[in-house]
């Protein structure tokens, strides 16, 4: 153990690139595993919600199902449609997955446990989630298919609309925390009130709007008009098969986990314990720690699956109405309210 720590410090001084690469692997490899088992959790949970059992054939209780799916997709043929734009067709899935992974660079898992402690971390996250839409648009256009193109158009309009509400919700968070640094935002939520000191309470409307916009940004049900299998088959990825399809799939689930984790960080206190610090300081598992981030992320992620099992798909004009005429005005009003609360030092901001 001692020698490992010495080796790690030596790496930090001499081969910092290698050290950073190791850190990236330590973040991305478990993330990919989480994505695989998130798909399994989705199928199981929705199965139980619909009084079915879900996958239970591969391995004990179906635990190996995601592995089997991955192997199947790897060995499938990659079909490229006639007259499709080959380069763009193959780049598109990567453009969906790339930003979803890159955003984790600034994510603080615990006090000081972060790959890059950026001052402008929140802006960086917002910028990266906003370029995720390119994967969908390029896929729809490069496929040379009407269904795919319609899906891409719907998705582009929807993501641009909800990005504004999402951005305004984040403006509320940064006004409340007084910082763009994600670690600082979590530290600003620390108080003697425990769970009631977190930002979900003073920023409640922004919390709801951020999460719902996150569901819309990731094109998940009930906002999944980009796929809309009853109208446009599978939307933007109708022409994809094999590995490129799998990469789209990974990107979608990685984005869901990212939105859940960000909700946990910005509104649910990140690594902070829900109990007041003076009660549980240093107590095993009850004190602050990385496990709280995972628990809160899983809690938020569960809602994505619950929504999908519960709500019917929104009609396109209803989506636009909700985004532009309901969410954006509410967020603007609440930014004003937060500003007043901060200036006059209400309970959370004293």
């Amino acid at each position: 153990m001692e020698s490992l720590i010495t080796l790690w410090e030596w790496l930090g001084q001499n081969l910092i690139v290698l050290q950073i690469l190791i850190k990236i692997v330590v973040i991305v490899a478990p993330l990919m595993l989480c994505v695989a088992y998130f798909t399994y959790a989705e199928r199981k949970l929705i199965g139980y919600m619909q009084v079915r059992i879900g996958p239970n054939r591969v391995g004990p209780k179906g635990w190996l199902q995601p592995i089997a799916d991955a192997v199947k997709l790897m060995f499938k043929e990659i079909v490229i449609p006639t007259k499709a734009n080959k380069v763009l067709f193959l780049i598109a899935p990567l453009l969906t997955l790339g930003p979803a992974l890159a955003a984790w660079a600034v994510f603080p898992f615990s006090e000081g446990l972060v790959l890059a402690d950026l001052n402008a971390g929140l802006l960086y996250i917002l910028a990266l989630t906003s370029i995720g839409v390119y994967g969908v648009i390029i896929a729809g256009w490069a496929s040379n298919s009407k269904y795919a193109f319609l899906g891409a158009m719907r998705s582009a309009a929807q993501i641009v609309a909800y990005e504004i509400a999402m951005g305004f919700a984040l403006v509320g968070v940064l006004v409340a925390a007084g910082s763009l640094n994600l670690g600082e935002i979590v530290r600003a939520q620390q108080s003697e009130a425990g769970i009631f000191g977190w930002f979900w309470l003073p920023l409640f409307p922004l919390f709801l709007i951020y999460f719902i916009s996150g569901v819309a940004e990731t094109n998940r049900a009930p906002f999944d008009v980009a796929e809309g299998e009853s109208e446009i088959v599978a939307g933007f990825h109708v022409e994809y098969s094999g590995m490129p399809f799998a990469v789209f799939f990974l990107g979608e689930y990685a984005n869901m986990i990212l939105i859940s984790a960000l909700t946990a960080l910005l509104f649910l206190g990140g690594w902070l314990s829900p109990l007041p610090a003076s009660w549980v300081d240093g107590v095993f598992l009850l004190g602050d720690g990385i496990h709280w981030v995972f628990l809160k992320t899983a809690f938020a992620g569960f809602f994505f699956l619950w929504f999908r099992a519960t709500f019917p798909r929104y009609r396109y004009d209803q989506i636009m109405r909700l985004g532009w005429k309901v969410f954006i005005p509410i967020t603007i009003v609440w930014i004003l309210v937060v500003g007043i609360m901060v200036v006059y030092r209400f309970a959370w901001f004293s």
């Binding site: 802006l123 917002l126 910028a127 906003s130 370029i131 839409v133 390119y134 648009i137 256009w141 158009m153 582009a156 309009a157 993501i159 641009v160 990005e163």
Partner: peptide, 14 residues
Amino acid sequence: ILVYVGAVMVLFLF
């Protein structure tokens, strides 16, 4: 990146 790539160019491409 946020304004031009994330919003303006998306509408352009659209």
